[in-house]
Design a binder for these strands. Structure first.
Lengths: 188, 188
DNA sequence: GTCTATATTCGGATAGAC
DNA sequence: GTCTATCCGAATATAGAC
């Protein structure tokens, strides 16, 4: 693996664990085994490194989500597959976590990958819901955009509740609850 | 207002804006107008100060939530009131925000107020749902604990989506979506 | 109780040799 | 491309006078 790649991977892991403010260039060097001079040769500084790491995390998250959302089955099944995917719940979401950081929010290079990821995800799920509605799978009262926002919010909020409780249980309850509510809107 | 109170209020505001890692004792002193020596006279250090601030934020959040949840009306109405309360969505939740911070998670003095707040909130809402179900307002298939987790997760996740989008819209969509899904489980 | 001075470590880099 | 040396300010306190 290239030096850049090792730097990016280490930065991804540290951002996930410790957030942007909590991630120091020195920690990245230690984790990656790359020296200081080398790091500053490949990246202009912390924001540059973090932006590269976030773009890669965003891309990976899209890939993983798409695998569930594009699977065969009904719209409901695919949303269920997305919600029920095996997750390391207590680690939280590598992208969602960044949204709260004021330095990330303030820097367009950092915020853009976060924003685009959730825009894409909500749009993708809204499309599925709309498709299901057209096919007569869901009742006409189910709003695609609102429902997609619920699905994504339940996952992100589930992570928050799980971390607060130091337990995956509230995450799983929220997912079950959301699927239960949605299931009742299917027809036949 | 007492010196302690000014320190606590300033710390609450800074924790909300900048998180635990991003909040320095010096910033607290500047915002509160309290000198260094004075601050260290009243609190042993940053964790002590943050714990006091979090306990107060937790108490305030419970008070505000209870006002909606204890209002007159059906269980659905009270949950709707909670979800639809006017919020400064882009600022996020002063308690939920702390859950992601590893230093908060690691220190029981800091994590406990966060944990207790969400335990209480989920329990309170689950009680309302159970009550509504007993009264015949909701159908028997609605699980109280799961539904409560959805409600709280939608709010917390809504904050994440709103920050990512730099817009309150996804928060509002998620709330509308959740209420729409829940409304269909009412009887008569 | 509050103030100012001092101490130590870390964060986030730049400089210049190899 | 990578290494080591160096720099400056911020974070988080402690010490001791008033």
């Amino acid at each position: 693996m290239s030096t850049q790649d090792r730097l990016i991977e280490s930065t991804q892991a540290l951002l996930w664990e410790r957030g942007y403010v909590g991630t120091s260039p020195k920690a990245v060097q230690q984790r990656s085994g790359v020296g200081q001079g080398s790091m500053y040769h490949h990246f202009t500084g912390k924001p540059d490194l973090a932006a590269a790491a976030l773009r890669r995390s965003a891309e990976q998250l899209r890939g993983v989500a798409e695998a569930d959302l594009a699977a065969p089955g009904t719209a409901y099944d695919r949303i269920a597959a997305y919600l029920l995917r095996d997750r390391d719940v207590l680690r939280g979401c590598p992208i969602g976590r960044m949204a709260q950081d004021p330095e990330v929010a303030a820097d367009p290079l950092l915020r853009t990958p976060v924003q685009e990821t959730f825009d894409w995800l909500r749009g993708r799920i809204a499309g599925l819901v709309a498709e299901g509605r057209t096919a007569g799978e869901f009742d006409p009262g189910v709003d695609p955009a609102d429902t997609a926002a619920v699905v994504v919010a339940v996952v992100q909020g589930g992570y928050v509740l799980a971390r607060a409780a130091d337990s995956a249980e509230p995450f799983e309850q929220a997912v079950r609850g959301a699927l239960g509510l949605l299931a009742a809107h299917r027809r036949a």
